[in-house]
Design a protein around this nucleic acid. Structure first.
Length: 639
RNA sequence: GCCAGUGUAGCUCAAGGGGUAGAGCAUCCGCCUUGUAAGCGGAAGGUUGCCCGUUCGAGUCGGGCCACUGGCUCCA
């Protein structure tokens, strides 16, 4: 008996067919169809219907078809480029999370000004509604064709494709090595935009050619494209590099002080101190002990730790004094280990959890510096847990739970974990690795965390789990990292005396929850759009007099709030109208604006305006104080 | 480090294809005495990122540094 395959049409109707291409089956109904989904695999509509199973025809509206749309958009881009810039060599052009890109080697450099021209040519190709045809060539034919065209990158790709049937796609005069799938015709790519121009190494290898990458995006509808562009605009508006100086939180004065070195202004420092206080209190509560260690250490230390052998290019040059070499610390671990080693340790003391807000310096290459997110001097919220093998599971579980607790306090609610396992080159014994990796896995599961395994991506010294959070714009950021270290305990010969009276090697876990204060502040600024929750707002309330007659009252109100522990300012400078002051307070995103006019003075109240623009009218002062305190205790953006 | 681009007053931006720089806001000084997102006037503020070069003359053209932006590689 022959089982026919089932094809589900966009309307939901099921048809039985096999062997013939989808497009033949669909006929006129192919309009708007983008691809087919069979066993979770995207198929091209030109392919024959599989012999068995169920296939669903996708329209552009199906989320699964987005990839096909964008991949085809990338081909349209490449097509346009070959028309406008003859002699351009093609590399690769995949769909990515937010759109697509295509890498080219242009005969002459191009710039952003060329993007509109390219878009225009793309529109032409789309208007021509060229059918995309799949062409199968033998390996020899493919090689001859690519060689004749001088497509060196494609030849390199070809060499890695197995088999003798090589898939190409043709649209009009444009032919590209590609395994598809693609939309039936270029006319289906309606809503697209070229976004950026960037350099990219061929195959990501810094030793190979630097290509020009053109980024773009495409959506099935104009609304979705518009929404995406708006989102990008909003993200730009929230950029911490704009908001930071605007809100007077920090500056980076590269000319005078140096690239990647951050100045924390009073308001930024205020936020930082609030985070630090919270962090330290919570760490003591969780059984950590705070330590302080120096910023520099002798070369012997870094020799022993192995940093001079493996990490030197990321370290600042040595400071030589009295014939000794000192290095700025790029990490805190060796110092914490040194504290551990000051005496003979008993198994009864473990686990030891040393935490430190440790400032480190790393010589990051100039091209990678980026606002607060990538700097050269930064303070990690670091800790090292030194424990017995039998304590590993419990410790890891606690660290992970602790990390989630801390991150949630900052309004992060969506997390993804990445579990990186043993790489090819590793040190330590496989049994330890297995145990550690298992502990990480179990902890993630115990917390109900979605995690992805990055096989072989662990550091050479141990497996790790990283937490990625999403900010309020759903952008991912990696903050927390929890790493095992099988290297340093060995190198520093760390031991403790077990119940058997003999020396044993402890496990060491390195972890940072917020990552670094610099990066974290940058992320927080963007996450909150500068409108910090009350507990973190550098100025929580501002008191504005309507005229100079109310200045004394405004100052009295401010003093009253200050006595209640509220961070408040009275803005009493002359020559500014109330409107001006309100505007200024709004732009500073101060949560509460207290306005005092003759009415409020008479009634002993303050008119309360929220950062949101909401005007609550005159309120008795005790109520205002209670409201601010309650909001602060909540640690949310609610006012 | 690499590719492309950018660098003008504290900030945001102007200065037709070379003729020694302008505006708004902020700042300061006056006036106004203000009721919920910019009251009015005036002053001050720049060796146009830095250094060479071409030119009678460079913000503008060329070269080299420095820094930043978008990426790549790397990373807290």
């Amino acid at each position: 008996m022959v089982t026919m395959a089932k094809v589900i049409l966009p309307g939901g109707e099921a048809v039985e067919a096999q062997g013939i291409p989808f497009l033949d089956l669909l006929g006129p109904r192919a309009k708007g169809a983008a691809g087919a989904l069979w066993n979770g695999k995207l198929l091209d509509l030109r392919e024959p219907i599989p012999a068995e199973g169920e296939t669903r025809i996708l329209t552009l509206a199906d989320p699964e078809a987005l990839e096909v749309l964008r991949h085809t958009a990338a081909h349209v881009l490449a097509h346009a480029v070959t028309r406008l810039f003859p002699g351009t060599k093609l590399a690769i052009g995949p769909a990515i999370a937010d759109g697509f890109y295509y890498d080219f080697l242009f005969p002459e450099p191009i710039s952003h000004e060329d993007l509109p021209r390219i878009e225009e040519e793309m529109r032409r190709i789309i208007a021509e509604d060229l059918p995309l045809e799949r062409v199968w060539l033998s390996r020899q034919e493919a090689e001859d064709l690519l060689r004749e065209r001088g497509e060196n990158y494609k030849l390199e790709l070809l060499a890695e494709i197995p088999g003798d049937r090589i898939s190409f796609y043709r649209q009009g005069e444009f032919l590209d090595l590609c395994r598809g799938p693609h939309l039936p015709s270029t006319g289906l790519v309606q809503h697209f935009k070229l976004l950026d121009l960037a350099g990219a190494y061929w195959r990501g290898d810094p030793n190979r050619d630097m290509l020009t990458r053109i980024y773009g995006t495409a959506f099935p509808t104009a609304e979705e494209l518009e929404k995406y562009l708006k989102w990008r605009e909003e993200a730009r508006r929230r950029d911490h590099r704009t908001l930071g100086p605007q809100l007077d939180l920090f500056s980076i004065q590269n000319d005078m002080i140096g690239a990647g070195l951050v100045l924390w202004h009073p308001k930024g420092a205020r936020i930082r101190r609030l985070i630090e206080d919270f962090w330290v209190a919570e760490h003591y509560r969780a059984g950590y002990q705070l330590v302080y260690t120096p910023h520099i250490g002798r070369s012997r230390l870094w020799q022993t730790s192995g940093h001079l052998d493996f990490y030197r290019e990321s370290m600042y040059a040595p400071i030589v004094i009295e014939g000794q070499e000192f290095f700025l610390k790029p990490m805190n671990c060796p110092f914490h280990i040194a504290i551990f080693k000051t005496k003979t340790r008993s198994y009864r003391e473990l686990p030891l959890r040393y935490c430190e807000l440790g400032t480190v310096y790393r010589f990051e290459r100039s091209g990678v510096l980026h606002g607060l997110l990538r700097v050269r001097g930064f303070t990690q919220d670091d800790a090292h847990i030194i424990c017995r093998p039998d304590q590993v599971e419990e410790e890891i579980k606690n660290v992970l739970r602790f990390a989630l607790y801390i991150l949630r306090a900052f309004g992060f609610t969506a997390f993804t974990a990445y579990l990186s396992t043993r790489p090819e080159k590793f040190i330590g014994n496989p049994a330890d690795w297995e145990r550690a990796t298992e502990a990480l896995r179990q902890a993630a599961e115990a917390e109900g965390l979605a995690y992805e395994i990055k096989a072989g991506e662990g550091a050479f010294y141990g497996p790790k789990i990283d937490l990625e959070v999403q900010d309020s714009l759903k952008r991912p950021w990696q903050l927390t990292t929890i790493q095992f270290d099988f290297n340093l305990p060995e190198r520093f010969d760390m031991t403790y005396i077990g119940p058997d009276g003999r020396e044993h090697r402890p496990y060491m876990i390195h972890r940072a929850l917020l990552g670094s204060f610099e990066r974290f502040l940058g992320i927080l600024i963007e996450h909150y759009g500068g409108a910090f929750p009350v507990w973190l707002a550098p100025v929580q309330a501002v008191v504005l007099p309507v005229s100079k007659n109310e200045v004394p009252y405004a100052e009295k109100v401010a003093a009253l709030l200050e006595a209640e522990g509220i961070r408040v300012e009275a803005w009493t400078k002359e020559g500014k109208t109330l409107s001006w002051l309100v505007r200024e307070a709004q732009m500073q995103k101060i949560p509460y604006i207290l306005i005092c006019g003759p009415r409020e003075v008479a009634e002993g109240k303050a008119a309360l305006r929220l950062r949101t623009g909401e005007d609550l009218g005159p309120q008795p002062l005790p109520e205002v104080i209670a409201r601010i305190k309650a909001a602060s205790a909540q640690r949310t953006q609610a006012l």
